[in-house]
Write a protein that binds this DNA or RNA. Structure first.
Ligand SMILES: [Mn+2]
Ligand SMILES: [Mn+2]
Ligand SMILES: [Zn+2]
Ligand SMILES: [Zn+2]
Lengths: 151, 151
DNA sequence: GCTACAAATGCAACAAGGTTGCGTTTACTG
DNA sequence: CAGTAAACGCAACCTTGTTGCATTTGTAGC
């Protein structure tokens, strides 16, 4: 007894951040931890609320924006815009697995379904265009919503 | 002779607006005309610039927002958020012609570009799913933004 | 055509989301 | 344990979009 240390056994976020080649700061660790814990992509406002709950003093609004962007820049987070036009962030591991297949998005319930098919090769781009990501989305009504609708 | 009137021969936008059951105002006609003439969905800012080029006095910023929303409300325009989180508007009929080709969305300026390639055939869907629309979007930086960025 | 009234407009103020500039602090390097 | 570049805090600013209210305008009914 009297041994059990406040032991930092294995801190995933810290390691990821260090491996990404940027400085390991308290802010970045807190934010990346929160992203990993989240079930859905978080907006800046939502992130701010989650961080406020903790014991540490809230970080500056601008700093949070910069931390989120830096995590995106070094590949540890993803940034996407939601239907209201607000940016949402998620831990990178969570979405990379969705890069190589097609998605079906239900316009009724908002659900996203992963299909087996993989997206086709990108067509040739006009001169000067730089491709970053490719999304092949089918939109319609999912099985559940279709049957419910057919009443 | 002396006959040739300042003839309003056939004003598509006016008829559409009247048929939609809302008041036909100069503002709405100008905006819907611009939407019909546009090759891509336009943001509020882009629309404002196009209207400024004309001879008529620029309309108020808020009025433009309200006109765009009213056109959406009566089904004459469509509203969608672009990669930057900015709303873009298009004439309602126009999107059918965009159904059969691929789009490139610039994550920098939010621009939407029509590519020549046509989307691949949709993969088989699970039982009960109903396909409505199919979007093959490439995301990245357009020629303009790429060169500007490379300075 | 004129009138009355709802609908649309202009203007000012507000709000959320996001960015920039700059002086101070902090994490890493040697 | 410096020295230094990166990160941070703070204030100010920008863009996009909304709300309230007084004034103008389109249109239906006469
Ligand atoms: Mn998926
Ligand atoms: Mn198109
Ligand atoms: Zn559904
Ligand atoms: Zn661009």
């Amino acid at each position: 007894m009297a041994r059990a240390p406040a032991a930092p056994v294995a801190d995933v976020s810290v390691d990821l951040i260090r491996a990404a080649g940027v400085k390991v700061t308290r802010g970045r660790v807190r934010v990346l931890d929160a992203l990993h814990a989240a079930r859905q992509p978080l907006s800046h406002a939502e992130m701010e609320m989650r961080l406020d709950e903790g014991s540490e003093p809230a970080m500056d609004r601008v700093t949070l924006y910069r931390i989120l962007d830096s995590l995106v820049a070094c590949g540890l987070a993803l940034k996407a815009v939601d239907t209201r036009g607000v940016f949402r962030f998620s831990a990178a591991g969570a979405q990379r697995q969705h890069a190589n297949h097609v998605h079906f998005r239900c316009t009724d319930c908002g659900g996203v379904f992963c299909l087996k098919a993989e997206p086709p090769p990108p067509p040739r781009l006009p001169r000067g265009f730089r491709l970053n990501e490719l999304a092949f989305d089918l939109r319609g009504t999912c099985a559940g919503c279709s049957s419910r609708e057919a009443v």
